[in-house]
Design a protein around this nucleic acid. Structure first.
Lengths: 335, 335
DNA sequence: AACGGTAATGTAATCGATTACATTCTAAAG
DNA sequence: CTTTAGAATGTAATCGATTACATTACCGTT
């Protein structure tokens, strides 16, 4: 790899002139420019970003921290973030933390080290204090998942109300034995709020809770089936399920089918996030559309304002409207 | 943000000593160490990685370039890559290129600029010459998708043979009117090889080709249904479909159901990649398991060897075994 | 010829670390 | 009381860029 010095040497000019040619930043005579460009081509010179970044104080890159990209729901948020980033000539780096604090800290070091200009948390394992500290020093924003009791901005939806809306659908369809099924972390705001919605709804109607939450929250599709099976063993008369994701809903339907029950005739199921699983699953699954592209875009807009020290356009603790998408899994007359 | 100089000043030592404390790299007396650590704590000092990286020539980070994380199939490859990376104290940055050359070039600049130590291509838009050049200068590896006529290493499977195996299943089940459905890029080796397998298989048996490939390769689920619909309009007697992905297979099954045909009774369908769609879809879909976790791990092992200048353990143009997973969508006696 | 203005280029400080080399200090050995 | 090894610390060069400031070259005015 050649350096600016080698180029300067070959072109018989100073490094300053080479820099001027590369960055088009000041007067350079046509003849010199030509000579420098020749030298650059000959040496196949690529400016080393480290030198540049060390001098400048900006990188035109932001980090996206999330649990893992294997959830297709996250992909849409990322796309929203990327759209706004690209409009601002920024690029994004996506990092899987797998909910591992140590790994998250490693990536956050990139922020503290000025290797990136800001961070979007789609999920995090930080303490409130830590995010508060980061937020005081660096551009930081949370999207979809967020910590409530902190200064950092967030863009999300009202998971509690969305949860109640789903419960309403099941209830209005006559269901009284409604189960709540969740896998994965119980520490995230979405799962807490969904459960609070379920719990409140059932308690207000003096109905018994039927759930694995939060005692046994394994991960993945196979475990979803197992949990649904366990609940059905304990509460065989359960006729409706609130699953906290579409994939879980698919697992529950599978288990119901396995036990000879058909959806929505014998039991109804709702999911969450309106991912492709919601319409790939048979029957299609009633779900909640979060407008995650828009959420990602709004969060990134906020972050860009912070980075560029401009006033922030919208409220920085923002819950935007969601849509309930009713599908076959809660339609009485279907099939 | 405080610098090493401020710490040195506060602790009344030289920057060299601070650096020694931080990196534990040479003799430092207990008393001094204490004093420096106090100063670090008081100033909340975080070493600026740029300074360090500029001096050192390694970053302990690699880039993963792929089309977009919205394909859950990629997530497993990434996990394999990450496993080996973490074992070597490396971290990975995932970058969506959306098949956009310009964006890809931007990220590759990070490689040329020494912001990362190497690159894993899961898909690329580079020319052969470009990859050859990169490969000559930097640690580079391709996984799953690859360019054939170049020096760079790749880890993948024999898509051609896998395609023929799938065709065999459909053929042995008595199907003669077999359609081939693809959406997305036609420029990638997997789609080329799958199609070649289909074409050869059909031609050897003097059967007519029924396909949209490569004339009209739109993206996504909705388009899959449309394409399947078009093929069925033109060739109503088509009784089997080779879909190049599981999600496509789901779309085709949907369209078949819409037209009153049931799978596998009236028509059979096979997918590819053995993603969660393959078992979420109803009926479950026969697919090809690529062992993508292992592929990712092997590719990253190769990359680590290159980065550390160690001899490479396995052949660097490697096609590993795959598995055909037969499910309901090709089972004659099912339902 | 002297002057001034501007275009063109160069010099050297700077960013924040690491580290080769130099220097000082300490304590044990002779 | 030297001598000396090696522990402890400091000085300054270095990585590869950018850029403030200095300098030179050139040209047109008066």
């Amino acid at each position: 790899m050649s350096t600016i010095e080698q180029v300067a040497l070959l072109a018989k000019v100073s490094v300053a002139t080479v820099s001027r040619v590369v960055n088009n930043s000041a007067y350079v005579s046509e003849a010199t420019r030509e000579r420098v460009e020749q030298a650059i081509k000959k040496l196949n010179y690529q400016p080393n970003a480290l030198g540049k970044l060390l001098r400048k104080e900006t990188t035109s890159m932001v980090l996206i921290l999330l649990h893992s990209v294997d959830n297709p729901f996250f992909a849409t948020i990322v796309q929203g973030i990327e759209k706004v980033a690209h409009e601002n000539d920024y690029n994004v780096l996506i990092c899987n933390t797998y909910g591992d604090t140590e790994r998250e800290q490693h990536y956050l070091k990139m922020l503290r080290n000025h290797l990136v200009d800001g961070v979007v948390f789609i999920s995090n394992t930080c303490t409130s204090d830590e995010i508060n500290y980061l937020n005081a020093t660096f551009p930081v924003v949370q999207v979809v998942e967020y910590l409530t009791d902190i200064d950092a901005a967030h863009y999300s939806i009202d998971f509690y109300q969305a949860g109640r809306d789903l419960m309403d659908i099941l209830y209005k369809n006559g269901h009284r034995s409604i189960g709540f099924v969740h896998t994965g972390s119980t520490e995230i705001v979405s799962s807490k709020e969904k459960f609070r919605a379920y719990k409140d709804f059932m308690k207000e109607r003096r109905l018994p809770l039927i759930t694995n939450y939060p005692d046994e929250c394994l991960f993945g599709y196979a475990n979803a089936k197992k949990i649904a099976g366990d609940l059905l063993d304990k509460h065989p008369k359960t006729t409706a399920f609130f699953a906290t994701s579409d994939l879980l809903a698919c697992g529950i339907i599978d288990e119901l089918n396995f036990r000879g029950k058909s959806v929505p005739k014998d039991a109804m199921v709702v999911g969450f996030d309106n991912t492709s699983y919601a319409y790939v699953g048979k029957p299609n699954i009633t779900s909640v559309e979060l407008n995650s592209f828009q959420l990602g875009a709004m969060a990134m807009e906020y972050l860009m304002s912070k980075i560029k020290n401009k006033p922030v356009a919208h409220n920085n603790k923002c819950l935007i409207p969601y849509q309930i998408i009713e599908r076959e899994s809660t339609k009485k007359d279907s099939r």
